[in-house]
């Protein structure tokens, strides 16, 4: 009576997808460490990484300059993809993304304010800025959610419009904050916050994002079952036993926290959180236990690769990586919008 597909089939495919992504990530990381203004042979990169003897000047470049930046790319890429996946379930809409919904801009505004005011003294960059970014993203998300909701329902159109408006206002605010502070280095910062970039990566600023990503993703994978229930709609989730308003509120806070911490470290990088979850769903389906690890790996690969391109396309100029993700992500977003199935809600 049981007409299942052979049990190994789905699992084999899933393992294959994870394996390919892990290999892609390893390749991207090594390439990210090897390429740049100084080219280092990949073999030598691996020797340095594995602690082998390498007296040359490359050691400093690999370990102190490039590695923090590449690792930040891994963390932020994974974090944004995970947040995008979860936000899409939360609002039941594939066009949700921390950047498009203005959450990243809220985080930028919070972080910029703290930086300009110099709040936090010695812990400005490691603690105060991420905390303010978290507050900013939570505020922005609550605002967009409140604006887009109408009698319990939320259309994609309202959601994206509210998100774009809030994003504009908050990124303008960020620019204003940085410019009135009238310190020339802040002009540079303004562009960095708006578009996002990994140039400020230091070992000292990696710890918090790494911890938040790891704990946040682990928690969300543990919450895969209720996340799936969200896809059944508010009423559907309730009749399947989920206290959906409390759960949604909790996921809201968690998504804002992860976004805030990522943005404090990298500025507002767009489109990773939009496109990676979509591609991951095409590869392994929409069930979150399978989806979240794939999205995380995929986001890491994409951002490390994009950052490598950002460092090298206009070398020695360092293009903000968000410019590249927007250049490629924008058209992909439009394509995604057009290929919505007939009659499906936007």
């Amino acid at each position: 009576m049981t007409r299942t597909t052979p049990p190994g089939h789905g699992r084999l495919r899933y393992t294959l997808v994870l394996g390919c992504l892990a290999a892609a990530l390893a390749t991207a990381v090594v390439a990210g460490l090897a390429l740049g203004s100084v080219r280092i042979p990949p073999g030598q990169v691996i020797t340095i990484l594995t602690g082998g003897a390498d007296p040359g000047p490359f050691r400093t470049i690999v370990l102190d300059v490039r590695l923090p930046r590449v690792l930040l790319g891994v963390i932020v890429g994974a974090g944004l993809a995970v947040v995008g996946t979860v936000l899409q379930a939360l609002v039941r809409n594939r066009l949700a993304d921390p950047f498009l919904l203005g959450i990243s801009s809220g985080a930028s505004a919070g972080a910029a304010l703290v930086m300009v005011l110099g709040i936090g003294g010695g812990i400005t960059t490691t603690v105060a800025m991420p905390a303010a970014a978290f507050a900013g993203s939570l505020l922005a998300l609550a605002l967009v959610y409140g604006l887009a909701r109408r009698r319990g329902a939320m259309t994609g159109g309202r959601l994206v419009l509210a998100g774009v408006a809030v994003a504009y206002i908050l990124s303008a605010l960020t620019t204003l904050i940085l410019i009135v502070s009238a310190r020339p280095e802040h002009f540079q910062e303004a562009m960095y916050w708006t578009f996002g970039g990994l140039g400020s990566a230091r070992w000292s600023t990696l710890l918090l994002p790494a911890v938040v990503l790891t704990l946040g993703t682990a928690l969300l994978i543990a919450l895969a079952r209720p996340l799936d229930l969200l896809l059944a709609g508010e009423e559907g989730a309730t009749v399947l036993g989920l206290d959906s308003s409390r759960f949604r509120a909790a996921v809201f806070v968690l998504a804002s926290l992860v976004t805030g911490v990522m943005v404090a470290a990298s500025g507002a990088v767009g489109f990773i959180g939009l496109l990676v979850p979509h591609a991951a769903r095409m590869a392994v389906g929409a069930s979150h236990r399978a989806l979240l690890p794939v999205a995380a790996l995929g986001g890491a690969v994409i951002l490390v690769a994009a950052d490598l391109a950002a460092r090298t396309v206009a070398a020695p100029q360092d293009v903000p990586v968000g410019v590249l993700t927007a250049l490629t992500g924008g058209p992909a977003f439009l394509w995604l919008m057009r290929r919505r199935p007939e009659g499906a809600p936007v």
Partner: peptide
């Protein structure tokens, strides 16, 4: 439920299995 449109690509099997959720711890 009335709004059970579910436009994400869960399989039919996954949707039906959701019915086990009330009998499970969330993890």
């Amino acid at each position: 439920p009335q709004d059970g449109q579910l436009d994400f690509e869960l399989t039919v099997r996954e949707v039906v299995a959701m019915g086990r959720s009330p009998h499970k711890r969330f993890w």
